[in-house]
Nucleic acid binder design. Structure first.
Length: 123
RNA sequence: CAAGUCAGCUGGAUAAUCGCCGCUUUAACUAUCUCGAUAGUUGAAGGGGAGGAAAGUCCGGGCUCCAUAGGGCAGGGUGCCAGGUAACGCCUGGGCGGUGAAAGCCGACGGCCAGUGCAGCAGAGAGUAUACCGCCUAAGCUCAGUAGAGCCGGUAAGGGUGAAAUGGUGCGGUAAGAGCGCACCGCGCAGCUGGUAACAGUCUGCGGCGAUGGUAAACCCCACUCGGAGCAAGACCAAAUAGGAAUCCAUUUGCUGUGGCCCACAGUGGAUUCGGGUAGGUUGCUUGAGCUUUUUGGCGACAAAAAGCCUAGAUGAAUGAUUAUCCUCGACAAAACCCGGCUUAUAGGCUGGCUUGGAAC
RNA sequence: GGCGCGAUAGCAAAAUGGUUAUGCUGCGGAUUGCAAAUCCGCCGAUGCCGGUUCGAUUCCGGCUCGCGCCU
């Protein structure tokens, strides 16, 4: 896997993948905009999925925007991340935030996740 | 120029880099066999990628399944007339009514002279209308015997109540009054004329008008119209699990199946054969009542013909991020089977027609 | 995405087109030595905007919000 593309291998696709992350969420990064939870996988690359409830962000346009922004940030920094399955859970209020704020939060979260994964690997 | 009004168009632009989703062409590898095709994976190149409302799901249609959508009842919808259309509750033209100074805009705009019902409070009276305050005392009776008072009555002009009280104005008439009579206006019926029709009329005749009050987004009547469900419809490939499924023959009742019911239709029982279809996947899925231009017909909606064009098709679900430049600093808002409408939301900009007012020539 | 329901006081829940019942809660008062129970009183633009009607909770449109069903 080279370059900065975003094919389907880098996403969580089935309900089984999601429930696996929820049931054993080893790593967690919390923020005002949302929560990233993650668990290690057997693959050599990370995967990501989204949970954005209709109650948190009212319209489909807004939900898609958040997904796009996080996806883009994830795509550009995929090689820095360990091989984990990540799920993003939105919090209320994220719909009003600027794209830059979401991007900053993502970069911070990737950093944190990598640290947590390194510690877990050593232990 | 200003104000108003109607119709139409537009809905940030340009460039670079990295990405996302289909499509087309092409190369390599793998698998299959009918041996030159099909499918998959990876790479390269090219080109495409949200809206005027994509929205609400309020109507109509296509498409799919249920039976080919058939008969009857029940129920729903529409409602001036004519036309357009695949169809419509939409559109166009016309009529009538309302509104505005006008351009224009708005109108669920059939029928209470078939039947049934409803109208709180107030008020005398709310429907085969009524008589509280009033007005009158001519005729008849009693007292008085000049005036007058009472009885028997007459009346609906005036007051007052109400959302609503059953023609209006004037003159005559009268005891007082009253379409009681007349004139004009209004109304109704019949005819005539014009118009396809709705409807209209300086038309003709008849009717005094308590005929025929209001209410049908009250039941209802009349005319026209509607079968039901919806792409999560449906079709195909198929681990698992349960035992059934298909074909043929028989076919009474009951039960089940499609809308609320009935008719009707299909299934059930026996024999033979072997498939069945949950997870998951594929398909339905975009060439269509399509778009653009021109011509012809029509007042118009629209129709016909010719030429050209192909313009998203996802399935955890695609248009973004970063940077630069410019301006008026960007509203409402994101396809999920597809079309035709309606309704609702919408910053700003542009164009044209019409009306009124002002100024100049 | 499609289909179907609902909205009445803080909560629950009635209501032929004619003054929005009732119960619980809350507040004030009466009662009591103090409380409980009991009695009396108070608190609503019927989700919003229009239309029909003399008059709409009710009838008819359009919005808003909430809930349910179908993979």
């Amino acid at each position: 896997m080279s370059g900065y593309s975003y094919p389907k291998q880098l996403r969580l696709l089935t309900p089984r993948d999601y429930s696996r992350v929820f049931e054993n969420s080893q790593f967690k990064v919390t923020g005002p905009l949302g929560v990233f939870i993650a668990t290690p996988n057997e693959l050599n690359h990370p995967r990501i999925g989204f949970v954005i409830a209709k109650k948190k962000v009212r319209f489909a346009v807004g939900r898609n925007r958040i997904k796009r922004v996080i996806k883009d940030c994830y795509r550009l920094s995929q090689h820095k991340l360990p091989s984990v399955d990540i799920v993003f859970i939105a919090r209320p209020g994220i719909g009003e935030k600027e794209n830059i704020a979401i991007t900053k939060f993502c970069k911070y979260s990737w950093h944190k996740l990598s640290e947590q994964a390194k510690k877990a690997a050593k232990a």
